[in-house]
């Protein structure tokens, strides 16, 4: 098969695909690098100028950069640890014969089909919310004070949410790998005197090594760019406690500036996105540790104000509290 001739032919055959792929990847990459050395302002098109390393310096010297880097590593590492260990354990469990196995397997995969935004909102409002959330209720029924997950342990909470989303993926891949393990190997090990733990560590785990690597590699790619979960829960806060690199980049963009994010400039409150109720408003995000008892009008000042502008009905307290936090945060800068 692999003669000189057939190899040359093979190369010729795959070359269009390779060229296309190269173009597909190299051109955007080159453009990205090129643009990274320009001062490029979308508001002033055609005025680009070469600025050398300024953009890089600007980003790297951002006081939030180090925190975001550490958060990113913690987030990725934490989720990887939880999903690979949990995935192995769940796969072992699901590999056991039990009644209703098929249904349970499908249900275990379910979280993977829930959109990140939705699942994060569900976790935020229905589980972690200290007043309305299940965990809060549970704590109260035990006579404990509810724990405000997203303010007191924002990064850990996000790690939890993201792990919940990715655990099915890991479980599924590891379960498949586990099922491909030759049963005779396990039986041989059993006859050789290996107990359940030895069988796991000497036979199953080495067999799973490759699958675990795949899980880690694929997840790392996606986990490095976690955004939606942070956006709808903590918005990177309190402070930079749950800001990862992706979110930090977002915070540097005009969209973030106009939405009035913590690290942005707090301008342009009338971004159209805010008309949608589900989007968290600045106050939600920026009040660390404050347990809110109601979610009334005062908590959604911007939405109210934006609506008011359109409907012509002036909201009462809306503007009063609207930019409060921003002002607090921005005092030093402005």
């Amino acid at each position: 098969m692999a003669t000189q001739h057939s190899r040359a032919a093979a190369r010729l055959m795959i070359s269009p695909a390779v060229l296309l792929l190269l173009g597909w990847m190299l051109i955007p990459l080159a453009m990205t690098i090129y643009f990274s050395f320009l001062r490029y302002n979308l508001l002033m098109p055609g005025m680009e100028e070469f600025t050398g390393w300024t953009n890089y310096r600007f980003f790297l010297t951002d006081p939030a950069f180090k925190a975001a880097l550490i958060n990113t590593l913690l987030l990725v590492g934490g989720v990887l640890l939880i999903t690979s260990v949990g995935g192995v354990l769940l796969a072992l469990l699901l590999d056991q014969p039990f009644w209703g196995q098929g249904v349970v397997r499908i249900m275990v995969i379910a979280p993977f089909f829930v959109m990140p935004t939705v699942s994060a909102l569900v976790w935020k409002n229905m589980f972690m919310n200290p007043v309305n959330g299940l965990f809060g209720h549970f704590a109260q029924s035990l006579g404990l004070a509810p724990f405000d997950f997203l303010s007191q342990a924002p990064l850990a909470s996000i790690i939890g949410i993201v792990s919940w989303q990715w655990l099915p993926f890991a479980t599924l891949i590891l379960l498949t790998a586990l099922q491909s393990l030759d049963q005779e190997q396990l039986e041989a090990a059993e006859m050789d005197g290996a107990g359940p733990l030895s069988r796991f560590f000497y036979i199953m785990l080495p067999h799973l090594a490759r699958a675990i690597t795949v899980v880690i590699l694929i997840q790392t790619i996606f986990l490095l760019s976690i955004f939606a979960e942070i956006f709808v829960t903590t918005s990177g806060g309190p402070g930079t406690a749950s800001t990862n690199l992706t979110f930090l980049i977002f915070l540097e963009t005009p969209a973030a500036l106009r939405r009035g994010h913590g690290l942005g400039r707090g301008r342009g409150r009338d971004h159209p996105g805010q008309h949608r109720r589900d989007l968290p408003d600045a106050d939600d995000r920026q009040e660390p540790g404050r347990v809110r008892m109601t979610r009334g009008a005062a908590n959604r000042p911007q939405i109210r104000s934006a609506r008011a502008d359109r409907t012509g009905a002036p909201p009462a307290a809306a503007h009063a509290s609207g930019g409060r936090i921003w002002r607090k945060m921005k005092v030093g800068e402005e």
Binding site: D182, E184, Q185, E187, A188, A189, Y202, I203, P206, H207, A209
Partner: peptide, 9 residues
């Protein structure tokens, strides 16, 4: 065993 069942790793 028929498949030898050696430990591949």
């Amino acid at each position: 065993f028929q498949s030898y069942a050696l430990y591949p790793h």
